[in-house]
């Protein structure tokens, strides 16, 4: 088994958070007992914590052979971000990312277990080995690339701004002084924070919450991936994507745990093979076409064979 020690920094740091809880506990305990009018306790043993149960940790990812031996691959996807990943009334996962995931499962010869993730938890799901692969509209960024290993891309993306038709936002300068809705842990949030730190941003954990908030008039605009903005405004009368391309042009790719080179290599080869059969164009026809209609041409979004 390939072993890569988890970075020691988080381990030590984590132990100290638990330590903090315990230290606080001692404080209460001591204060409580001292106040109990008993003579002061002279126990120093209380400090050694039972909670810091450390085991010799090794990398907790599975390579291709292990996944195939176990017969199941765990893929982290969105469960509330139609048309990319959502759950239908039957309880089944559907969407653009899901088609890709299903194909990976088929070609690996294993079952696919979909694990719903939130935008902000995608990195930690990989880091902690809760999933083998993330296919959740994951935009490739330098900061994320320090934490996870991205695969070759399968989509292009920039940011977009959705706003009510009655008060459309067509220029980023218009956002000043407005209430801007974003989803936590997305590139929209980091972009606004770095470029426009003074803007008034309201952050939600889930896509459902963000879109609800926009519908209920809790914000003046929603900044998100332009793919998402276009998809959503196309289906929601009364809203427009006033800015269709904001910020740098990025790509969307799958990601595996840092150091899982075996799985990454297999998946990148798979992506090249899929490119030969125009897999993502078919995927687009199947899942995105009905949403985008003629607003977008497939080539504006789809990346085949990992070649931008």
């Amino acid at each position: 088994m390939s072993t890569i020690g988890l970075a020691t920094r988080p381990r030590r740091a984590a132990a100290s958070t638990l330590g903090l809880v315990l230290a606080a506990a001692c404080l209460i305990g001591l204060a409580g007992c001292a106040a109990d009018s008993d003579s002061g306790p002279d126990t120093s043993a209380a400090g050694s914590s039972p909670a810091s149960a450390t085991t010799g940790s090794s990398a907790n990812f599975r390579d291709v052979a292990q996944i195939q031996a176990d017969g199941t691959i765990r893929i982290g996807v969105f469960s509330d971000k139609a048309p990319f990943g959502s759950v239908d009334a039957q309880g089944d996962y559907v969407g653009y990312d899901i088609e890709y995931g299903n194909r990976i499962g088929q070609d690996l010869g294993v079952e696919v277990e979909y694990v719903p993730v939130e935008a902000a938890s995608r990195v930690s799901f990989l880091e902690t080995g809760k999933v083998d692969l993330i296919l959740a509209n994951f935009t490739v960024t330098a900061e994320r690339a320090e934490k996870v290993d991205f695969l070759k891309p399968y989509m292009k993306v920039a940011l977009g701004v959705a706003s009510p038709e009655s008060a459309p936002i067509t220029d980023v300068a218009q956002l000043a002084g407005q209430k801007i809705i974003v989803v936590k842990g997305t590139t929209a949030e980091t972009y606004l924070a770095s470029q426009y730190p003074d803007y008034d941003v309201i952050k939600y954990d889930q896509y459902t919450e963000a879109t609800s908030a926009l519908l209920d008039g809790r914000g003046d605009a929603w900044v998100t991936d332009n793919t998402e903005a276009l998809a959503w405004t196309t289906q929601n009368p009364g809203f427009v994507t006033g800015i269709a391309s904001l910020g740098p042009a990025d790509t969307i790719a799958g990601a595996v745990q840092k150091g899982n080179t075996d799985l990454a290599a297999w998946l990148n080869n798979e992506l090249v093979d899929l490119g030969k059969e125009d897999f993502f164009h078919q995927d687009y026809e199947l899942t995105l076409k009905s949403v985008y209609g003629d607003v977008v041409s497939p080539d504006e979004l789809v990346v085949e064979g990992g070649q931008v």
Binding site: P10, A14, L20, S124, E143, G185, T190
Partner: peptide, 29 residues
């Protein structure tokens, strides 16, 4: 959960964006 910017909101923010999970949680506690 209703986007009120309390302590947990800030902690989740730092976990999600900077991936400084331990620092964010230590401050929260």
């Amino acid at each position: 959960i209703i986007a009120y910017p309390d302590l947990v909101y800030v902690a989740k923010d730092y976990i999600g964006n900077d991936y400084n999970t331990s620092e964010a949680l230590a401050l929260l506690v």
